[in-house]
C-alpha cells in the first residue's frame, strides 16, 4: 500500500496499548512517517506526559503546540498535550459556561461532576480531539492514548457518559464523539504490543473489545521491539580464536538471542493465527535513548512495512 494513501485514510489515528510496549515511540514513528508523505501531522499526548517532542530533538511540549519537524515536501509534525482539566475549562467556556467554569474550578465541584459521570475526563479529552479534527488543524491527528487502565475503557467513555448524563450539553458532546469513533474515514485505532506472551494476549483481547464494544475501526497492529534476524547462532565454538571470557560472552549472547528469537517467532505466529489484522513491525533498538536518528530509522522501517500491506488491516 502507498504510504501516502495509508495516512490519508483517516483524519485521526488513536494509538493505544498497555504500559511498557513503546506506544509513545510508535506514535512518534507514525507521525514522522506520515509527515514524510507531505502531510501536516498533529501529535497529541493525553496522559500528562510530554515525551514525544524530545524524540524529534525539541524541548518538551505543553498545552500549546510545538513545531518539531518540517519536511521538504511540505509535511510537518507539531506536538501538543491535552489534559482533562484544561479540556474541561476550555469546553465549558466555548459552550457558554465561562462563569460556571471558573466557579466550578473554585468550589471543587468538578470532583463531584467527575464522580457523578464516570468517564467524563476521557470524554473531554476525546471531545477536544474531535474539535481539532473538525477545525481541520492538521491533515492527520495522531493520539498517544493513555496507558493506565485499558484502551477499551478510554474509548468506551463516550457511550458511558451518554448513558449516565441522559440530558444536558454533556450528552450532546458524548454523541458527537461517538459519531467520530464510528466513522473510519474520520477515526481509527492502531493497537501496539510487543512480541511477548502477556502483551500479545492483551492485544488480542483489546482488539476484539474495541471492535465489538466501541465500534471503532482498527488499522494494522504495531508490533514493537522486533529482534532483527541473525544467521549462525547455533553451535557457537569460539574457544580457539579468543580469550575464554570473550568466548563465553559470545556463547551467552548467541544463546539468549536464539531463545528470544524463538519466543518472538512463536508469539508472532500465535498473534497472526488469533487476530486477523495486518502487522506493522518495528525493530528493537539497542541505543540508550530515542532521538531524531533513531526515530528516522524507525520511520523508514514503518514506511517499508506499510508498503508491504495489501490494504487497511
Amino acid at each position: 500500500m502507498d504510504p501516502g494513501q495509508f495516512f490519508a485514510s483517516s483524519r485521526v489515528l488513536i494509538v493505544a496499548g498497555k504500559g511498557g510496549v513503546g506506544k509513545t515511540t510508535a506514535s512518534a514513528t507514525l507521525a514522522l512517517a506520515a509527515a514524510r508523505t507531505g502531510r501536516s501531522v498533529l501529535l497529541v499526548e493525553v496522559a500528562g506526559r510530554s515525551a514525544t517532542a524530545p524524540m524529534f530533538g525539541a524541548a518538551p511540549q505543553g498545552y500549546e503546540e510545538r513545531a518539531v519537524f518540517d519536511h521538504v515536501d511540505g509535511g510537518s509534525v507539531r506536538c501538543r498535550s491535552i489534559t482533562p482539566d484544561e479540556a474541561l475549562v476550555e469546553w465549558l467556556s466555548t459552550h457558554g459556561f465561562g462563569r460556571i467554569a471558573r466557579r466550578m474550578a473554585r468550589t471543587g465541584i468538578l470532583e463531584i461532576v467527575a464522580t457523578a459521570t464516570p468517564g467524563i475526563k476521557d470524554l473531554l479529552v476525546l471531545g477536544r480531539i474531535k474539535a481539532l479534527e473538525q477545525q481541520r488543524v492538521a491533515d492527520l491527528i495522531i493520539v498517544d492514548a493513555p496507558a493506565a487502565g485499558h484502551a477499551v475503557q478510554f474509548l468506551q467513555a463516550p457511550s458511558g457518559v451518554r448513558d449516565t448524563a441522559r440530558a444536558g450539553v454533556l450528552n450532546r458532546q458524548a454523541v458527537e464523539v461517538m459519531e467520530m469513533l464510528d466513522d473510519p474515514r474520520r477515526c481509527r485505532a492502531m493497537l501496539v504490543s510487543i512480541p511477548e506472551e502477556t502483551p500479545v494476549n492483551e492485544l488480542i483481547e483489546t482488539a476484539f473489545a474495541v471492535e465489538d464494544r466501541v465500534g471503532l475501526a482498527l488499522g494494522p497492529v504495531i508490533i514493537n521491539g522486533i529482534l532483527p534476524a541473525i544467521e549462525g547462532l547455533d553451535a557457537v565454538d569460539a574457544s580457539a580464536a579468543l580469550l575464554a571470557t570473550e568466548a563465553a560472552d559470545l556463547r551467552l549472547a548467541a544463546d539468549l538471542r536464539r531463545n528470544r528469537m524463538a519466543l518472538q517467532a512463536e508469539q508472532l505466529d500465535r498473534l497472526a493465527d488469533r487476530l486477523p489484522l495486518a502487522q506493522l513491525r518495528l525493530p528493537q533498538l539497542f541505543t540508550h535513548t530515542i532521538g531524531p536518528d533513531e526515530l528516522t530509522h524507525l520511520a523508514d522501517e514503518a514506511t517499508s512495512s506499510i508498503e508491504t500491506l495489501k490494504g487497511w488491516a
Binding site: 549462525g232 547462532l233 557457537v236 560472552d249 559470545l250 548467541a254 539468549l256 538471542r257 539497542f286 540508550h288
Partner: peptide
Amino acid sequence: PLAGAAIALADHAAAAAGDDA
C-alpha cells in the same frame, strides 16, 4: 563463522550498557 554470534554480542552489550546507565 562467528559473525552472527558477534552481532548478537554487540547488540547485547550495547543494550546492557544503556540499561546500566
